[in-house]
Amino acid sequence: MSEHLALIVDDHPTNRLIATTLLRKMGWQTHEADNGDSALELAARHDFRLVLLDISMPGLSGEKTCERLRQQYVGRDIRIIAYTAHAFPEERARFLAVGFDDILVKPINREQLQAMAQIS
């Protein structure tokens, strides 16, 4: 059951809705969080396989949240994808360095997401 559990973290409800809708269409069960701390709480309670994580959020930033998540999920199978409107190449490089597996640049591209979030 928990194998297809995805977490969408974004402070914008619209962005969460689009991602949730697309992921559910792909077969994912989704949870949502509107800030980093809530995300970490949820992550502690569930075993997520995929996290779409916004970067610019009030409170704990996406990068910090990513680092903490990596610490929580040491040794576990999890894909953390930056879900962000920061599109400049230098920004992308920064995210990959922090620990993100991939970057999904807003505006969301359906094909891209499908490629990234394929249920294996």
Partner: peptide, 12 residues
């Protein structure tokens, strides 16, 4: 960032 964020909604 600020231009892309609404576009996400629109395009999405």
């Amino acid at each position: 960032h600020e231009l892309r964020t609404p576009l996400n909604g629109i395009l999405g």
